[in-house]
């Protein structure tokens, strides 16, 4: 196996062009590639599409100003989001009302499964979740099917140009281990983008993460960035 290139957060952010679709792991900023996001904010890269459970937080756990991708929203760098919950980032609602941000909300399980489908070669997901709701009108809903007397929505697979993972330990081959609740959407997002960048708190020697404990396989990771330690 080959060692993966290690970049600085700034080098990683520079790889992402205007208009890119980015799958962002993380849930309220936990398990998010926050150092790369900070650099994207500095660069001002525009017209991004973000796929993430939520738009992170405007204030971090220790009172930090911005925590994760909320700052990209604040900085008007985003044209579209696919998310499940944006209640903690009121700027999303404001920009939607101003007509500058397209917001597609879908159920949390559907988001996870659509991204999984995108990375697993599936043409879509049939889920009973969202039947009889506004989700039937979502651009991500491709139709409705009745199977054995029960209705299901056909949801589109989701892929990204980039996936930004927020991991705890990453070894030199790109194998990742997530601490606590960092794992969330990261493991499926690692499979569903053309370029996958794993930001970690610690780069460790190969073998330190036991084979049974590899959550994201190095084969999915293209670049490694060492971010802040918390």
């Amino acid at each position: 196996m080959a060692k993966k290139p290690v970049l600085t957060a700034a080098e990683a952010a520079k790889m992402i062009p205007e208009g890119a679709t980015i799958l962002c792991g993380g849930f309220l900023g936990c398990g998010q590639a926050r150092a790369i996001v900070k650099e994207l904010v500095k660069l001002g890269t525009k017209n991004l599409t973000l796929v993430c459970n939520d738009m992170a937080r405007q204030t971090g756990p220790m009172g930090e100003e911005f925590f994760g991708i909320a700052e990209l929203i604040h900085n008007h760098q985003v044209k579209r989001i696919i998310a499940t919950h944006v209640g903690m980032t009121p700027e999303v609602g404001q920009q939607k009302n101003e007509g500058t941000l397209e917001v597609n909300l879908i159920p949390q399980g559907s988001l996870a499964e659509c991204v999984r489908a995108g990375g697993a070669g599936l043409g879509g997901v049939l889920t009973p979740v969202g039947v009889d709701t506004l989700i039937e009108d979502s651009p991500l809903c491709l139709g409705k099917q009745r199977i054995n007397g029960k209705d299901y929505l056909l949801m589109a697979p989701i892929r990204g140009d980039f996936a930004l993972l927020g991991t705890y330990k990453c070894d030199e081959y790109g194998n990742c281990w997530y601490k606590g609740t960092m794992r969330n959407f990261n493991t499926v997002m690692a499979t569903a983008a053309d370029t996958v960048i794993a930001e970690c708190e610690y780069i460790v020697p190969v073998g330190e993460i036991e084979p049974e404990n590899v959550h994201t396989y190095g084969m999915c990771v293209d670049y490694i960035v060492e971010g802040d330690r918390k």
Partner: peptide, 15 residues
Amino acid sequence: KKMPGMGGAMDLCVG
């Protein structure tokens, strides 16, 4: 008025 999002609520109600 409010658009917080459904989060996991739709999945939980169905499942």
